[in-house]
Amino acid sequence: MAKTDITKLGTDVAWQDVTRGNTVVGCGTTKQFVTGDWTNVAPVIDEEKCKQCLLCVPCCPDSAIPVKDYKRCAIDYDHCKGCGICVKACPFGAIKMEVKKNA
């Protein structure tokens, strides 16, 4: 069957429209759920200092440091919860925690 359109499964959904057995067709839907606002601090990478060693990548609990073509991409601030593990994992001191600025 077609992928579940979770945008139609908001908390106002009627019983007739809840998916059978609360199942979801097509996984990985948490990407649509923002957890970046769980924190008021966030890591910032100094691109100059970063050596692309990727050691920060596996220790992120929120899969918020994506890799593409063997290179670390920009931090996914929509999902980063600001735990700071990556800061300590970086052997080059290239990551610092900063207080988020009000948008």
Binding site: T29, F33, T35, V57, P58, P61, D62, V67, K81, C83
Partner: peptide, 22 residues
């Protein structure tokens, strides 16, 4: 190994810094 596609998507609701998710 790091270049493999991510199989555990962001946006889950574990605590910040959780070891289980790592």
């Amino acid at each position: 190994t790091m270049n493999k596609p991510e199989r555990f998507a962001p946006g889950h609701r574990m605590c910040a810094g959780c070891g289980a998710t790592i």
